[in-house]
Design a protein around this nucleic acid. Structure first.
Lengths: 362, 362
DNA sequence: TTGAAAGCGATACCAC
DNA sequence: GTGGTATCGCTTTCAA
């Protein structure tokens, strides 16, 4: 069933039917009702391809995933963001177009996306320092919103970001409050903007308590199991090993755990770990207690906001860039365990509500 | 630059230009060369929207992700599949359209995808037993390929699947060869077809050695950290705890590890674990040694094959359904450790090459 | 308030 | 070999 056929059955012109269905004010209410009723009766669905050609809009948003950055698509964070954005697209009648392309073809992909009119705009993932994609997209004339920020960018741009710096600062403070003085950082690759910010939060928290950050226990690598393992292994082998580790991803945390086991240490007794990027929980008296910092739901929200922002921007071309910083929902019900051994104890475990409310200091 | 404009500059008709660019044989070679040269000179890119309307094809493949099945998009397996399929789409000029929809809207989504002409076909993910999507898609008339199988389907259908049954059988055999006699299974939800097949492989391997499978150490749940924890906790609390666990996902494996630690056991000394769905590795003398069964690269291959299959099917409507079973690349260089304690030892660890080659029995 | 008709930018049939 | 033109199904002036 197409527009022309529907119009014929209603004995109306396609023009009027189109207007009625698209909510134009000039149609007679009675007519509109007739049209709407008929449309649902015949299960009329407008042909997307025709709409696209006629309006010149793709009604689609692109997400380009370079394939060498393979960990990225696996990264739960990426999936959550996609899920959030996808919700918005469904609601708004947009399609989400995922392009999985070899690293070196990324630039050409953006150009094609534009010149072939496949998408109306794109979301930029995993920005690096002074990311070359931003000037490229500007040159090409494709509206975009960045998930994350790109320090060093000359021009302003629109972004949605989770406050990674603050999240890591708070996680570090939490460990400090537990009495830890030697805290390792197992970070992602530090040419990624988010990793830089995370490190900044970590070092700030240490500095504030007068603790110098020690490069010997600060690691930066792909967020894989084996890199987590290597980092933790190296850290624990030091003459003055850390009593706690702050880990950037659940995948690297797998490796960290393995290293801890191999070292003959017990998690929660000899050493504490906080994992960013995931929600885990303990069962305690039959109830689930959240234990880690959780950014995942924030990331999903970021996906929603970025999608909404982009759609709105496309409706107002030439508008100013927009920015939105989200606080990660830092939920800590119980750490993986305080270590009182060779660290100066600061007293009891801070209580969860206080932390959740943002008061990192007990 | 569009076709008409390009034709004008060449002083040719749009028809000829179109033919030249699309490789039609009737075009004079000299003309074709002129056209091709001009096209690249002016950086002409045909407008996708127009092609779609004119040809009636969407040049797009849909992937529908129900949102309640949230773990699915997070699942590394899903991401690998997407990456594999995405490669093929890029090469073939297809777009990948991801629809993230609330569970209850899934059926309507498929109908819309068809009637609005957004996609030419779809890939069905995570099939269940006698999955209702298959008859629906047939009714709607949308070509599809299933990633996995749906036992109980009345009609034949096209699918690509990793041999989960054999992978689990071999992993189980591997543990048996190490001397384990009491092996727990931490499986996914067993209304998912793949989980059913995995269990089958596990029980078969046991039966073959005359070991009755014990429901007390067979667990089936969402593949989350806490369900893995619960399963392992329960298993290890039994009067006759397992000496090895076969775990279906890396996420549940996180929980399994936690339970093992809490029980005061040491992985690799007191208990062995094989994790499906991921590649991990140990560092041994500075070299990485793979330790787990790895299906991930197979899954990526499955994505490629499914995409190719679907594209080919769409080119030959009315053709027969196709099937493709992939053996998982079962790589076991080193288990997480044999347990000789209360299990009857069968001798040495089988060597990696033999296992990789498919000889599960030493 | 409604309708006729001209696009949108390709493809593809039919003449020449 | 090449070109004219209808067509895909909708939107959007412009007139009535």
């Amino acid at each position: 069933m197409n527009l022309k056929e529907l119009a014929r059955r209603l004995d109306l012109s396609p023009t009027t039917v189109s207007r009625a269905l698209n909510g134009y004010p000039e149609v007679n209410e009675a007519t509109r009702e007739r049209v709407v009723a008929a449309a649902r009766r015949y299960n009329y669905q407008p042909n997307t391809r025709a709409i696209r050609l006629a309006t010149g809009r793709a009604m689609a948003i692109g997400h380009v995933i370079p394939i060498a950055t393979r960990h990225e698509i696996v990264n739960p964070v990426f999936a959550d963001f996609i899920a959030g954005a996808g919700e918005v697209y469904s609601r708004s009648g947009y399609d989400m177009v995922l392009s999985v392309v070899p690293d070196e073809a990324e630039e050409q992909t953006y150009r094609d996306l534009k010149s072939r009119g496949t998408v109306d705009g794109v979301i930029v993932h995993a920005p690096r320092l002074d990311d070359p994609r931003l000037p490229l997209l500007r040159e090409v004339g494709l509206p975009f919103v960045v998930h994350g920020r790109s320090s060093g960018s000359a021009e302003p741009y629109s972004w949605v970001d989770v406050n990674n710096r603050r999240a890591f600062r708070r996680a570090t403070e939490f460990l400090l409050d537990l009495g830890h003085r030697r805290i390792a950082l197992v970070n992602g690759l530090e040419f990624m903007d988010f990793a830089i910010r995370r490190r900044a939060g970590y070092t700030e928290a240490l500095a504030e308590r007068g603790i110098a950050s020690d490069p010997a226990i600060m690691f930066s690598d792909e967020m894989t199991e084996s890199s987590g393992y290597r980092a933790a292994k190296a850290a624990l082998a030091l003459p003055d090993p850390p009593t706690a580790l702050l880990v950037a991803s659940i995948i690297s945390a797998m490796g960290v755990r393995r290293a801890i086991e191999e070292a003959g240490l017990k998690l929660g007794r000899d050493v504490s770990v906080i994992i960013h990027d995931d929600e885990l929980s303990y069962l305690k008296n039959g109830e689930e207690v959240p234990i880690f910092t959780a950014t995942r739901s924030s990331v999903r929200l970021a996906g929603r906001l970025a999608a909404e922002m982009l759609i709105d921007m496309m409706g107002h071309p030439g508008g100013p860039p927009r920015e939105r910083l989200l606080e990660a929902e830092l939920i800590i019900g119980q750490s993986t365990g305080p270590l009182q051994s060779n660290a100066t104890s600061h007293g009891a475990l801070p209580d969860a509500p206080a932390l959740a409310a943002g008061a990192a200091k007990p």
